[in-house]
């Protein structure tokens, strides 16, 4: 992978600052809260910054209706709970919309606690495995960014601050829905930190 110079890192930080500023403004709008859920947003913003991904890649991949029905049908506990919706003659758009968030939770949520609370009927071992794998697949991205930052000759103080931001991003990954009120303070701190870094 490419090694970043100080200048390149600061350029990325500036971009991050701009993006996060946009993010905090846009989340005031109801329609973007869904699009920029805190976990995917932070994760994807970094993905965008590091890989220069376009806007189209700022969401998690969507499933097709059949994928949603098959996945839920294959899970013990959910198969019984949604027996009516899963019947092959019954399947319709409304049921797809009802079951779609469950597919997204099970495919991308990285928190065992959240999955357990939302799906008590599903065996714990399954949820534990899902959340662990999801954290591995998604959280590792943050680790890769950290490794890349560590290879640079950026000032150790700045490196430490960037690592702190990245660790916070990693902590945020479990949240697939909305920004929690108690997290909003952290956002402010991050914006200030990035502001100071980007201003150099």
């Amino acid at each position: 992978m490419k090694q970043f110079t100080d200048e390149e890192i600061l350029e990325k930080v500036r971009k991050l600052r701009d993006l996060l500023n946009t993010f905090s403004i846009l989340t005031q709008q109801w329609w973007l809260t869904l699009l920029f859920g805190v976990g995917p947003a932070l994760f994807n913003l970094w993905k965008k910054i590091v890989n220069l991904k376009p806007f189209a890649d700022l969401q998690f991949p969507e499933p097709t209706p059949a994928m949603v029905f098959y996945l839920i049908e294959s899970i013990e506990g959910l198969k019984e709970k949604y027996e009516e919706q899963l019947g092959s003659e019954r399947r319709n758009e409304e049921d797809f919309q009802l079951l779609r968030p469950i597919y997204l939770d099970l495919t991308y949520c990285t928190s065992f606690k959240i999955l357990k609370e939302k799906y008590p009927e599903v065996p714990e071992e399954y949820l534990e495995k899902q959340s662990r794998e999801n954290l591995d697949f998604l959280g590792r991205c943050v680790e890769i960014v950290k490794q890349e930052v560590s290879k640079t000759d950026l000032d150790p103080g700045h490196k430490g601050e960037l690592f702190a931001v990245l660790d916070f991003f990693k902590e945020c990954l479990p949240y697939l829905d909305f920004i929690k009120d108690e997290d909003k303070g952290k956002y402010k701190e991050i914006l200030e930190l990035i502001e100071s870094l980007g201003g150099e």
């Binding site: 991949p61 996945l71 899902q130 591995d136 697949f137 998604l138």
Partner: peptide, 20 residues
């Protein structure tokens, strides 16, 4: 695949294919 959403979704895709 590199770590990321596509890799996370691949695990669900595998589960669907095995089920089918």
């Amino acid at each position: 695949l590199d770590p990321g959403p596509e890799k996370a979704e691949s695990a669900s895709v595998r589960q669907i294919l095995e089920f089918r």
